[in-house]
Design a protein around this nucleic acid. Structure first.
Lengths: 281, 281
DNA sequence: TTGTGTGAACGTTTTCACAGCG
DNA sequence: CGCTGTGAAAACGTTCACACAA
């Protein structure tokens, strides 16, 4: 199938493990803070605490970059800042475009964290003609028609999608066709992109759902039976439930939803489904 | 050390692997879409494609919940929606508070994806007295002074922090003290919480930095030497660089930054550092 | 026959524990 | 002696491939 893969495919980042790459920005932040307080060196223990990881992990991570520490002393803060910035590619400036200037898009445009790292908002793009020309975060919003021209003229390779879910794939396709090879997606959809294009997604409601899961667990343990329910117990219960489950399903199929049964979940909020992450763009 | 751990500690979620939990919302979304199109059943292959994972993974994931499929047929859409919702704890309504009603906080308040799942915005809280009483997304913003009362009165157990980095830990402490046990943190800081409290973080600039890393890789490969640089080559290069590196560092220590050297990284943007994710709250 | 459910193989990430450098 | 750097072990996650139920 040459249709293009869906998500971070076999793009194994040569050399540095993906898990490590994901933590480098964390270290960088902690180091920057230390640097501002003019702290000259840190131990792996201290830095790890500041970054919220354990020291063994941090040392392993750094070992992939090279041997930048001094035994018996620690790491030189300034020097590490430089090395990590370099490794992350933050010593150059990355022009980015934000597409979809609704509530969230505007928040992103105003977000200082971008500019303070190596990112520069090259343009804000929105499909609403009424938005065109209006300044957001000091930048005039441009119309979607200009998208391709903006990408090429500015040599943009990173795009941020903050449109409603419905528009996301379309926008994504245009970005990619115009030359964008990295996409940060805030729309609650799975984007399909060709090989060689990286997509990362941020989904606000998914994060909350994960929290809800754990929250429910806590509640269950407090009220529930034993403190430590074994894995087996769960598996067995699930297996036992299967019979009952099948009956319920059949009942439901006959159009008579049982008291504690399906079909209820989908009428939670009417024909709403995947609501856009932002105001209509 | 009773100081309280930093990040998802040993809270191994009994039974269902964390990685699976993180994907359940994805499946749920795909299923909801199918449900709306009145599709009665899906195969693991189809659903996996819609969710952007491969089918083996999806089947494994579902196997942790129980045996909810029918061999030779697939999964009953409505039924799976129900089961996953149940597993995620979305059959009940979770009141959440959002603290820090800046640009991002407002975007979150307006985000339809919360309400459409089992989440209800119980209150918006901000430290700015001028904000108090102003309606955002149809809800009057309340002052931080009310925080504890709001939490207890509404039985809130999930809090969203969208304040500037500087205020986040303080807000977090108050939320936790008032009874919140799950926190979604948008501020670019590592939060320290007691055991039993879950924290998930969303950091916009970290995501971009990860993209930049991969983007740099791509560029390097295009321009660079061999197509497929071996892991060893990198390791060796790093090791060789060590010598040079040490010299550079010593030069820098003497106050004479070399042409291609440290200290440059921190003056990128003056005394800016960790800029808040949102407007001052 | 079709497509689920799952042991077993494989790959990645984390943790351990300690040799050895400064 | 203290703290990094790193092999080796353990834990975790993904993929394979096929028995078996419908």
């Amino acid at each position: 199938m040459a249709t293009g893969r869906t998500h971070r495919p076999a793009t194994r980042s040569r050399g540095i493990p993906e898990a490590t790459v994901a933590r480098l920005p964390l270290y960088l932040r902690a180091l920057t803070a230390l640097s501002e307080r003019s702290v000259p060196t840190v131990s792996s223990e201290e830095l790890a605490a500041a970054a919220g990881v354990n020291s063994a992990k941090l040392r392993k991570d750094f070992s992939y970059l090279g041997s930048y520490g001094t035994r018996g002393v620690g790491y030189d803060v300034e020097y590490l800042v430089y090395q990590i910035s370099r490794e992350l590619g933050l010593t150059q400036d990355w022009p980015v475009v934000i597409v979809g200037i609704g509530n969230l898009g505007a928040a992103l445009a105003n977000y200082g964290g971008f500019a303070s790292r190596g990112f520069r908002v090259a343009a804000l793009i929105d499909a609403d003609p009424a938005m065109a020309g209006k300044p957001v975060a000091g930048i005039a919003v441009q119309h979607t028609d200009e998208l391709e021209k903006i990408i090429t003229d500015n040599g943009v390779s990173i795009g941020v999608i903050a449109t409603p879910a419905g528009a996301a794939q379309q926008v994504c396709d245009r970005l990619v066709a115009a030359g964008v090879t990295s996409i940060l997606n805030f729309a609650p959809t799975v984007l399909t992109v060709p090989d060689g294009v990286d997509v990362r997604k941020v989904d606000l409601s998914i994060e909350l759902q994960i929290l809800a899961f754990h929250e429910q667990r806590k509640a269950g343990e407090d009220a529930g039976h034993d403190d430590e329910e074994s894995d087996d117990a769960r598996a067995v219960a699930a297996r036992e439930a299967r019979r009952a489950v099948r009956e319920v399903r059949e009942a439901a199929a006959k159009g008579a939803p049982a008291a504690d049964a399906p079909a209820g979940a989908s009428d939670r909020k009417g024909p709403d489904g995947d609501v856009p992450a932002v105001m209509p763009a």
